[in-house]
Amino acid sequence: MKKKDKIIKGDVVPDDKYKEESWVYSEIVKDHFFNPRNVLLDDTYYKADGIGVAGSPACGDMMTVWIKIDSKTQKIKECKWRTFGCASAIASTSMMSVMVTENGGMDVKKAMHLKPQQILERLGGLPDRKFHCSVLGDIALREAIDNYFQK
């Protein structure tokens, strides 16, 4: 009865409703959105071996990626980024940065061929319509690697 009274009283949001399970994104996306990994807050003194940009503000998603590469092993030592965009854009860049730096770093050649689907899988999926517009991390990464090889 108490519950019913509460709703009739006109509470905007009854306390027992609206728990987190109704989120449109997976728990992993949510985690990376609220706690993004490898963000480069200030690039003033950051000495990157390669820089890449993907997307545009007009499209609603844009990201910059900075990488450091071990010249001997040709593995990605660091992958830093900043992203303007929706939750899935932020989370997917964050996840990409983890994927290429974990386990001692990804081989540059392998990283060149990183597919957005691989990022998607690690994120535990994304709503269909979000996938194409917001998973741009691989493009920015490729740009950064190209940039490294051009140097």
Binding site: V13, F34, G60, D61, G85, C86, A89, C133
Partner: peptide, 24 residues
């Protein structure tokens, strides 16, 4: 510099419910 959906979802976590005209 701040995308609307991100803003909205961060507010959502704080228990503040708004909306956005962002494409997302």
């Amino acid at each position: 510099g701040v995308e609307g959906e991100s803003l909205m979802l961060m507010l959502d976590r704080e228990g503040i419910f708004a909306s956005t005209g962002s494409a997302c």
